[in-house]
Nucleic acid binder design. Sequence first.
DNA 1: TACAAATGGTTTGTACACCAATTAATCATG
DNA 2: CATGATTAATTGGTGTACAAACCATTTGTA
Lengths: 155, 155
Amino acid sequence: MSDFADIPDPLSLERQVCFALSVASRNVIAVYRPLLEPMGLTHPQYLVMLALWEHAPLAVKDLSRMLQLDPGTLSPLLKRLEAGGLVRRERDTNDERALAVVLTAAGKDLRAEAEKIPPAIVARLGMGLDELQHLHESLMRVIAAANSANGHGAA
Amino acid sequence: MSDFADIPDPLSLERQVCFALSVASRNVIAVYRPLLEPMGLTHPQYLVMLALWEHAPLAVKDLSRMLQLDPGTLSPLLKRLEAGGLVRRERDTNDERALAVVLTAAGKDLRAEAEKIPPAIVARLGMGLDELQHLHESLMRVIAAANSANGHGAA
DNA sequence: TACAAATGGTTTGTACACCAATTAATCATG
DNA sequence: CATGATTAATTGGTGTACAAACCATTTGTA
């Protein structure tokens, strides 16, 4: 069992998991950038498209829950996707408060391009799928821990 | 050996490591927020302070390399730290182009408060130090892989 | 059926984060 | 020693990201 008393300098930058997390997130997104840019997508927009290709139509509330993003972040992002012709923002006929974000033909077609992305990323990273799978499981545990610490999950 | 051919839907949102990375990063930073806010720091500012407590004085170039952040991001951030009285932005006497970011007395004093942060975070997350250490190692490997993919490291 | 509470989105304000262009200082080479 | 190339930092533009305030619609309840 390791303990805080064993750690020489708990404030050392290179020891911080939060620092490694933010650098890893930013730098992995940077690997996506040159592949997404010719598709006219940013990384957050790519994630929204992934959700829509699986589950469209979706309300802002649904996307907010799935992507764990603030509605105030999604609102302008969806307008940019609509301006790019990938998405239409209609009203839910049952509940006029809710938005129904649907894919346009161009939005659906883009999926074929997107299918090339994951293998290209793995090739560029040069990491084994097994190690990535393992990292994914670790990340899911931190996400669960952080969510319950933030009051967004188990008590 | 796992292979892409074995994966049913490579575009499934919940399968994306990049998605898990960004959610983990955002949500772990959210755990820091209530602890950093009374200190008057955001999370990126906290990371800059960590670097300065270890190595001040530092130039923007040094911070950019250590934190792997764009100088254009650091420039206004440092001005906000200076406005908060934690830092002074002087000129390097040897090289008038470079900035020498130094700690004020208040900036140095804040370190005592910051020492309470890491144990408090670990307690809130409710994860073992061993598992965090293990995650940290995995993250360092992705960072190295992403950096070489982005041309910021090994050829 | 009125009407207060709750829900779904948008807007505003502050703070990253990256890119490209700019400016000032230093260096390298003739 | 002059001048072109390099380097360090700043600025401006676009796009997240979160919190708080706001508005319209729906729901719960007397």
